[in-house]
Amino acid sequence: MIEIKNISKTFLTAENEVQALKGITLTVNDGEIYGIIGMSGAGKSTLVRCINMLEKPSSGTIVINGKDMTALNEKELRAARSKISMIFQSFNLLMQRNCLKNVCFPLELQGMKKADAVKRAKELLELVGLPDKAKSYPSQLSGGQQQRVAIARALATDPDVLLCDEATSALDPKTTSDILDLITDINRRLGITVIVITHQMSVVERICSRVAILDNGIVAEEGKVTDIFTRPHSDTAKRLVFPDDPGIVTEDEKERLVRAVFDGRTSADSPLIAQMAISQNIIANIRSASTKTISGKLYGSMILALPDDDEIVRRAVEYLNSQNVITEVL
C-alpha cells in the first residue's frame, strides 16, 4: 500500500517560489492500477517523483508498505528504490548499451552474476515481446519498442510498484494501446501496483481502477474511475471528462441541451434515442457523443438537443433516467 500523506512541495527558483504540490493525500492499494491525471503543470510529475524521493517533499510523508520513505537515509533509500521502478515519457534507455545490457543494468547495480543477469534479461525481453532485439541498440528501435525495453528493465528487480510518468505520451494511438495492454497484463500477472501519470483521459479510462484528478497542486477529485466518469463534480474533472461540451448556453434559443451519461448499465445495442422518439414522441438531436462500448455495455456521454419546452425536457429526463442514463440539464 502506498500512503501519500499531506505532501507539499515548494520549488525555490531564482525569481520566485513555485508551490507545485499543496497538501496531497492519497492511498493506493496493493495490486491496483491507479491513475493520476491533470493538466500540464498540475504537479503530476512532481508528485510521482516524490513517491520514490527523486524529489524531496517539503512536508508530508510517503509510506510504502509500512516504510516511511521520507525517513530513510541515502543507503536505505537506494535499497527501497530497487523495489519501486519507474518508466518515462522519453524512455531514458542507455543509448550506448544494447537492449539486453540495458535490461541487465539494474541487476548489475545489485551485483547479480553476469550469467544470471543475462538469463533474466532474456526472459524479460521475451515477456515484453522483443526476444529478437537483445543485440539491437535503442537507436535502432521504434518508440514503442524502446518503451518495451524500458518496461523490461523496470521489471528486472521484481518491483512491488511501477511508476509510469506519461509513459505513452510520445507514442501513436496504436502503440499507446499496445503498451497499455502490456502494463495491464503485467499488473495482472505479476500483481505489481501501478501508478499511471497522464494527461489523457483515454489512458485512465482504459486501464485504471481509481483515479485522482490533480489541479494546480491539489486533488480536485478522487475515486473510482467509473464514478468520476459518470458523475464528475469538480470543474477540473468536468473539463477532463467532457472536453468538448458546447458550453452552458446554446446558440439556438429554441432548444435545450441535456447531457446523458452512460455508466455501463445500458446495453450498447439498445437504440435509446430512437426508442424515446417512438415511445415518448420526443425527438432528440445528438449534438456530440463520446461513447464507447466495453464488453457490450455503453460508457461515455452524449449531448442531446431537445425542444425548448420544460414539459418535454422533464419527460425526456424521466425517460432517460428510467433507462439507467444519468442526466444533467445544461
Binding site: 528504490r81 518515462f88 531514458n92 543509448m95
Partner: peptide
C-alpha cells in the same frame, strides 16, 4: 549526459 538517463539510474537505486 542526458538528465533523464541519470534520473532513470537514480530511480533504480544507483549510487
Amino acid at each position: 549526459t542526458d538528465r533523464g538517463v541519470i534520473e532513470a539510474a537514480q530511480s533504480m537505486g544507483a549510487s
